[in-house]
């Protein structure tokens, strides 16, 4: 554990908390892509199956449990509790175009051809593109609420900080994992356009609006 990794995890946690409290207190999931949230629930489920096989640390277990529970809680809020506010007409990204390549790639490129390892690899690939339905939705409506922008910024920063963590681990331990690094870079690059808009607009108190 190093500072980048810790900040990355905290940023991830912050993103989830922002999203949950936004939906909960506004009693609305308008502007949130349910499809991205479904993909995240699949990502955490596939990745954290090791909860029942390996003990790493109390920190590790707690974070995994929080990420899993919060992803299902988010789905519950969107699909059941506040389903009337779900903006399904703008959430039209076809997630099979992300799921199928992630499955095929995980079967082809992995560290070890075992069930848990292929699922871990699948979750890494899928996570790198899981935000696309959400970004697609923002581009389709041309705008995002500030709170949604804060959510996206925190979520995007998380993998960016993990990249610094991987640099640090390479220098200090000589450890590196190409699958995680390449997927992490792809994931972060997908947010770059958004990061730019966030810094130039949202931080200056303006609403995130895309040029028409």
């Amino acid at each position: 554990m190093n500072i980048f990794r810790l900040l990355g995890d905290l940023s991830h946690l912050l993103a989830i908390m922002i999203l949950l409290q936004k939906i909960f207190y506004s009693r609305s999931c308008a502007g949130i892509s349910a499809k991205s949230q479904v993909l995240f629930a699949i990502v955490y489920t596939a990745r954290y199956l090791d909860l029942v096989t390996v003990y790493v640390s109390l920190y590790n277990i707690s974070m995994k449990v929080v990420f899993l529970l919060s992803s299902y809680a988010t789905l519950y809020l969107i699909y059941l509790k506040f389903r009337a506010t779900y903006d399904r007409n703008h959430d039209t990204f076809r997630i099979e175009f992300l799921l199928l390549p992630a499955i095929v790639l995980a079967l082809l490129i992995n560290h070890q051809f075992s069930a848990l390892e292929v699922l871990w690899t699948f979750s890494i690939y899928l996570e790198s593109v899981a935000i696309l339905p959400q970004l697609f939705m923002v581009s389709k409506t041309g705008e995002a609420e500030s709170i949604t922008s804060h959510y996206l910024f925190a979520l995007g920063s998380y993998r960016g900080l993990y990249i610094l963590n991987w640099f640090y681990r390479y220098w200090t331990e000589g450890h590196y994992d190409l699958i995680a690094i390449v997927a992490g870079v792809v994931q972060t690059v997908l947010y770059c356009d958004f990061f730019y808009l966030y810094v130039t607009k949202v931080l200056k108190g303006k609403k995130l609006q895309l040029p028409a």
């Binding site: 990794r5 995890d9 991830h12 090791d50 390996v54 790493v56 640390s57 590790n60 974070m63 995994k64 990420f67 560290h111 070890q112 390892e117 871990w120 993990y162 963590n165 450890h175 994992d177 995680a180």
Partner: peptide, 10 residues
């Protein structure tokens, strides 16, 4: 080696 290390990160 790499496979074990994967369980630590989130």
């Amino acid at each position: 080696q790499v496979v074990e290390e994967n369980h630590d990160e989130l």
